[in-house]
Design a protein around this nucleic acid. Sequence first.
DNA 1: CTCTGTGAACATCTTCACAGCT
DNA 2: AGCTGTGAAGATGTTCACAGAG
Lengths: 207, 207
Amino acid sequence: MKHIAESTVRRLSLYLRFLEDYRRQGLETISSGDLASLGGTTSAQVRKDLSFFGSFGTRGLGYSVSALSKRIREILGLEREWRVIIVGAGKIGAALAQYEGFGYRGFKIVGVYDVDQARIGQSLDGVIVKDQQELDGDLKSLKADIVLIAVPPEAAQPLVDRVTKAGIRGVLNFAPAPLHAPAGVTLRSVDMALELEILSYALAAKA
Amino acid sequence: MKHIAESTVRRLSLYLRFLEDYRRQGLETISSGDLASLGGTTSAQVRKDLSFFGSFGTRGLGYSVSALSKRIREILGLEREWRVIIVGAGKIGAALAQYEGFGYRGFKIVGVYDVDQARIGQSLDGVIVKDQQELDGDLKSLKADIVLIAVPPEAAQPLVDRVTKAGIRGVLNFAPAPLHAPAGVTLRSVDMALELEILSYALAAKA
DNA sequence: CTCTGTGAACATCTTCACAGCT
DNA sequence: AGCTGTGAAGATGTTCACAGAG
């Protein structure tokens, strides 16, 4: 398969949400124009995005809501369950552990770890915070696929090294630090301070 | 000023962090190559990014750490204080209110609001959660610049409409909903579920 | 000789416009 | 007639490669 742009994948993920809204409303077909106006893009963009993966629509009619949902879920790898471990049970880690947005789409939190004795043993939405010393063993025994990093920035890179050594191939980082992972590992970062600074730029630039 | 790509602004923000690391280490100059290797980019990219805003370097030597820091802070609008209001004191809102990453760079949280009586009155890192009914008045009296949205998805768009009507021009949304804002308002979204889905795609695609 | 600053070449992503099904 | 699917054109972002300052 040809390489797909991240922007395309992001939009696919959005389309899936709109499709689920449509299904909830009992609608059976949707056009590229409908998807476009919901997502703030153009109908050509929607058709182009989908065309990378095949031809799912019917000319003159549009797309079947259920068939397209299914197909996008397959493309995104959401038809399977992903087992997620969170490292760091501070404010962000705790918020992530209890975030409803994850569970409903096949992301299952199977463990939360911290180094702070005060946090170990706490229950976060049914998952008990465990001692980080148990992490290496648990990554394997719990069959974790993805690690969410919610530790202080200086602890983040060593943690990436550690979990990738244990075989983890997907990491989502929330620490404000630029991290590096070996080839074959997908590492993404969500940096809230950075987002605020980009907003600051936009506000300052138009003032 | 010509339009600057978001990717450029994002990198500038990263460069600023590296510059601060360098300053902490007492180093006085830095080359585009140094900045590039820290940020996982190329020296040409660094120079191009900076060139949009002027010529700050010395050929044969590099950039003055302190002068470049100062200049990037000006560009990003970080030499001033931004007054931030958080709406929604659930898990995410509370984590944001207590996130240290914001304060140190001129983002001051001046208020947190919720509709839930059980949360109103709670103290989050020194800020008392107030009743959301007071939001409209406080946006003006507290001179808020930026609103962070941490409410359930269905409440997000009405909230955007409300705060933009009150004069807010910068919104950072954490609810998993695609929002629209009037022209002149900068709205950015951080969507954690979306990030996990993009990760899922990457893992599924290489499997 | 080193490292910046930048036009030009290149690569990537988006939009256009229309042929082709239904 | 309506809407998809897709090459081609256009716009945007990145890398190259070198002139020029120190």
